[in-house]
Amino acid sequence: MLLGPSLALSAILFSLGVAGVLLRRNAIVLFMCIELMLNAVNLTFVALSRLYGAGGYVMVFFVMTVAAAEAAVGLAIILAIFRHEQSVDLENINLLRG
């Protein structure tokens, strides 16, 4: 059935995504790590929909849609930031600093 191993793989991929977000400063790589986390979650949905029915597949579609939308808008934001800062290094983007 591969339920346990699938979930474990999903967990490892998700953790790697978190690690990437924490470690990298490049905004685009950050985005890719977020995509990685979304993929890990998708794997969970697919694995569990063998038990709970086709709702999991539908949810995967929604996640993909959101991911696509997020990628489009997020990359547009990065473009705008790059135009302004000439960099996508997050160290340089700290408008929220108290």
């Binding site: 977000v21 924490l22 950050l30 997050l90 983007i93 700290n94 408008l95 929220l96 600093r97 108290g98």
Partner: peptide, 10 residues
């Protein structure tokens, strides 16, 4: 409290 707000996404 504001020192917590580094502005660094990380």
């Amino acid at each position: 409290g504001s020192q917590l707000q580094t502005g660094q996404v990380g």
